[in-house]
Design a protein around this nucleic acid. Structure first.
Lengths: 211, 211
DNA sequence: CTACACTGGTTGGTTGACCAGTCAACCGTC
DNA sequence: GACGGTTGACTGGTCAACCAACCAGTGTAG
């Protein structure tokens, strides 16, 4: 094995760390410059590392971008799971999920990444697969929360999966609008839309949600 | 003016026609290859025309792409207006609008253009403006149809604009999902989602829509 | 504990492909 | 013969990917 397990930094650890560092830098650079105009050199620069090193850890630029998208997607779904695993009624849980969709502020541009990824996914099956998993994760979690509410007698809904698909779709669409034309819709209005649609879907009055 | 008005083809007409032809070719090529990997030369080739001619009619590639998006968007909204101007009840009109959102078949890839445009719009204010107008057009028309239904006593809705925004958002989101992962949702299910959400929004039973 | 070979990570310069936009010359029509 | 439309070769620049060389640790044998 290895001399003194644990906190020691082996070569493999170093490589993993660098890999993670590159993925992180890639995400930052892509968010800032857009996928189309992100160069390998930009990511290298953002990591204070040579261009060649990128190709040492990732065979091609595509590999790097794909790995970055996959890592981001997985983190996203994991965080979402944590969020619904907390305490509270089904309404509270649902509200937390809705809030997690929505960018936390004007400066939160994280959705830009997925706009780029959607366009890329049209041509790249690998990317499309990642997007399918991400979207599937969202929908699954929404459906779980709704089903739970139905079981507890809080919600009324005879097709939680369908309701989840509609809610997920609406949130995607509205967030695109919010991200692209922030002047056309305030964050407050976006959240209100989400809550209204949710009340329609789970058969409860709007007042069941917090103001 | 011009010698012999009407069907005669003057130089100006010829230029306009070529311009339109180039815009059309640009749309076809972008749909096929994606915005990111569309070269000016590709559009030239698709029109059987030299590369230089493109730059005679459009100063830059950006000009060409922007003009193409604007033309496509305007045509889209115009067609939508025609569609709701026809005869029928408010439910029928609303159903026609919902159907117009949805790609007519698996091979109808027209939405790909807007996925590309969303990604581009993040960085390009000109493009963003076009998208805002397009989306605004859709929402406005939905709101009109809903308001009309309310006036006639067919619908019940105290915020037609809000309902229109939610419906538009949901359709955008679901169509993205349908376009990207056609395996994950059939066209039939997509239309059913649209109708269910619509019934929620305008306060009518699902049976008011055709099967 | 030391000398040495080896491996993995890293560098920075290079290469070959690609592409938007320019330009000088050409053609047809009024 | 002037002008609008058109050509296609050319340029300047950009970028992904490759590569030769370098260096810091690690394991091994004396």
């Amino acid at each position: 094995m290895r001399s003194a397990e644990g906190a020691r930094s082996s070569r493999a650890d170093q490589a993993d760390q660098r890999r993670a560092e590159l993925l992180d830098a890639a995400r930052r650079v892509v968010l800032e410059r857009g996928l189309a105009s992100t160069r390998v050199a930009d990511i290298a620069k953002a990591t204070n590392v040579s261009g060649g090193l990128i190709h040492y850890h990732f065979a091609t630029k595509d590999d790097l971008i794909t790995a970055m998208l996959r890592a981001t997607s997985e983190t996203e779904v994991k965080r979402l799971r944590e969020i619904i695993s907390g305490p509270g009624t089904a309404v509270q849980r649902l509200d937390r999920v809705l809030r997690y969709y929505i960018p936390s502020s004007r400066s939160d541009q994280s959705w830009i990444l997925w706009l780029d990824a959607w366009a890329l996914g049209v041509r790249e099956p690998h990317v499309r697969e990642i997007l399918l998993e991400l979207e599937g994760g969202w929908i699954e979690i929404l459906a779980e929360v709704i089903s739970e509410g139905v079981d507890k007698g809080e919600f009324f809904c005879d097709d939680p999966m369908g309701a989840a698909e509609r809610l997920d779709g609406m949130l995607d669409g509205l967030v695109v609008r919010y991200t692209l034309h922030s002047g056309a819709m305030s964050r407050k209005r976006l959240l209100e839309h989400a809550r209204i649609a949710a009340t329609h879907e789970v058969g409860i009055p709007r007042s069941a949600f917090p103001a």
